[in-house]
């Protein structure tokens, strides 16, 4: 069975991973290569590296930094930000990126988007779609101008599909950094507009958010930025909790946290003292591959 994916988004601003709140406020987290090393060890399924300062400052992707990041990454790596030509994509794939994420390029130069799909295959192209609710309807939104695009959602998505996108990354601007959970309503609408895989982003708070997402929609993947960065083994614990509900995701390690008490926010609690007293330690030899 195809597993559903848990994707970590690294929002990178001026070469530093940041926490993003509502596309407006940013708090520093740390170096991208270190964040990736941990996420990879904790069993993430995929990493989306999104440089939010490159395009707005008219810069190219930082290829050297991507190389450093890719060195620590044994899962798929998608890179977005600052991509304006086929040559950029070529250099990114040579730096270790498996996919590219485009957003603004769709407006600036749709022909380049099309040729990315033709030259590198559809599977290499993720189109990022920012949406925002205008009254009762969801509309495509442009993050640079902070305005709605003059298209309705269905038109815009079918245009994205025609250009050869292999995956659609749906980011709900209102939920960004809000910890309110994924916007299930929007995703239910969008999944009827397209047949390409959908990655949901924006609002994840804990494992519960992913369980809701996978239970109520057919999206292929759930992505989160902020919440993976702030707790040890966040990915592993989150995935273990999802799989206790339904075996939807891949577990890389043997740790399934089945006997661990977990609080309502999805954090691990200490075991009862009498359990700890009677614990037997089992030595597990580290596997050398």
């Amino acid at each position: 069975m195809l597993k559903r994916r848990i994707i970590a988004v690294l929002t990178v601003k001026d070469d530093i991973v940041v926490q993003s709140i509502g596309f407006q406020k940013y708090l520093p987290i740390g170096k991208p290569e270190i964040a990736v090393e941990f996420l990879n060890k904790w069993g993430i399924d995929e990493i989306a590296y999104n440089d939010i300062s490159a395009t707005s400052k008219g810069k190219k992707p930082n290829f050297e930094l991507i190389k450093k990041v890719a060195k620590k990454c044994f899962v798929p790596l998608a890179v977005g930000g600052g991509i304006s030509s086929l040559e950029d994509v070529r250099k990114l794939t040579q730096s270790g990126a498996d996919k590219v994420i485009v957003n603004n390029l769709l407006l600036q130069n749709p022909d380049v988007v099309k040729s990315i799909a033709e030259n590198f295959g559809n599977q290499c192209l993720i189109v990022s779609l920012d949406i925002k609710k205008d009254g009762q309807t969801y509309k495509p939104y442009h993050y640079l101008t902070q305005k709605y695009l003059p298209y309705n959602l269905q038109e815009w998505i079918s245009r994205i599909e025609t250009l050869g996108a292999g995956e659609l990354l749906v980011n709900n601007v209102d939920r960004d950094g809000s910890y309110q959970g994924f916007d299930i309503e929007a995703l239910k609408i969008i999944q009827n507009f397209t047949s390409i895989p959908i990655i949901a982003l924006g609002g994840a708070k804990n494992a519960r958010s992913f369980i809701e997402l996978f239970e109520q929609t057919q999206v292929d993947a759930g992505a989160a930025g902020n919440f993976f960065h702030f707790t040890e083994h966040s990915v592993n614990i989150c995935k273990a909790q999802i799989n206790q509900f339904q075996p939807w995701v891949r577990l890389e390690t043997n740790a399934n946290y089945q006997d661990n008490p977990i609080d309502t926010n999805g954090r691990l609690l200490k075991k009862e003292d009498d359990i700890l007293e009677h614990l037997l330690f089992v030595k597990i030899e580290k596997e050398i591959i």
Binding site: L2, R5, D45, I196, D220
Partner: peptide, 11 residues
Amino acid sequence: KAAVPHVGWND
């Protein structure tokens, strides 16, 4: 009903 490309972790 399944999306193409086939992307993700499969057994």
